[in-house]
Design a protein around this nucleic acid. Structure first.
Lengths: 136, 136
DNA sequence: TAACAAAACGCAACAATGTTACAAAAACGA
DNA sequence: TCGTTTTTGTAACATTGTTGCGTTTTGTTA
């Protein structure tokens, strides 16, 4: 575990070891709040934010989009076409330069292999990069 | 525009008309804060939250995941396999019952048709539903 | 191992975002 | 127009994320 920190150019501290252990042990994506519960209140909230940030910057963790909060909204497909069947199963593109998020209506989300026993109700596909106006 | 509200069983109010107009005019996904800027401070913040919620519940708007905040973190693929090339280009599954989000390591995100001139740097695919332990 | 510079930490204060409760106002069917 | 239901505004609160700064810790070098 210490080797993992060193490999990613992160100084070994007790806080970082605790956080890393959480992820190694539970094997699923965790929000800031969930990690906080696992490491306990003895670690300062701000410190945890900074640890997560440093882990991400150094390639130890990656972001996983969450649906709960801080979402944007867009008009449903059928709004412009009143008689059409309802389907919002398309990808979205977010430009990192201007910040706009647009619907890619023509790109439906392809089927993904999921583990046996899982049931998918909804899917979100977000592409990030530069739009045609910001690409230069 | 009034017909749209009626069709979705939403009472016609001046606030809802303003919000709906924002989405019809700008044609892109908007966060709560962005809509607030467009409609101005005369509309109460809480009211706007409720209008967006009612629009979503009645099928007029749909959620678009955003990457900025409220994300979860997961260990990068290469953490367990130190010599492997770095790639976090896989889908994630979030269970709506237990709230866990896991990486679907074996499911890489397929290529998506994007508009001419756009450049994709990163992509997030989130599947939502029930995991094998919550499906019954 | 002692000293030093850089990095990480804890704390306080703040900003932004989201929620709840309740009374007043508006919408809409009768 | 009346009366019921829904929507709205206000206030208060909770959660989440950020910034600045002084102190502590880490790791390197003498």
């Amino acid at each position: 575990m210490e080797a993992l920190l060193k490999k990613h150019n992160l100084r070994k501290t007790s806080g970082r070891l605790s956080v890393l252990q959480c992820f190694l042990e539970c094997g699923k994506a965790l929000s800031h709040g969930e990690v906080q519960e696992l490491v306990g209140q003895k670690m300062d909230r701000v410190t945890l934010y900074r640890i997560l940030q440093s882990f991400e910057e150094n390639g130890l963790l990656h972001k996983v989009p969450d649906d709960q909060v801080s979402v944007k909204y867009a008009l449903c497909d059928h709004v412009h076409d009143l008689d059409h069947a309802h389907s919002d199963n398309h990808a979205h593109f977010k430009c990192n330069s201007c910040g706009d998020t647009v619907c890619l209506e023509e790109s439906s989300i392809p089927e993904i292999n999921i583990p046996r026993g899982f049931q998918v109700n909804q899917s979100f596909l977000l592409l990030e990069g530069l739009c045609n106006e910001c690409v230069d």
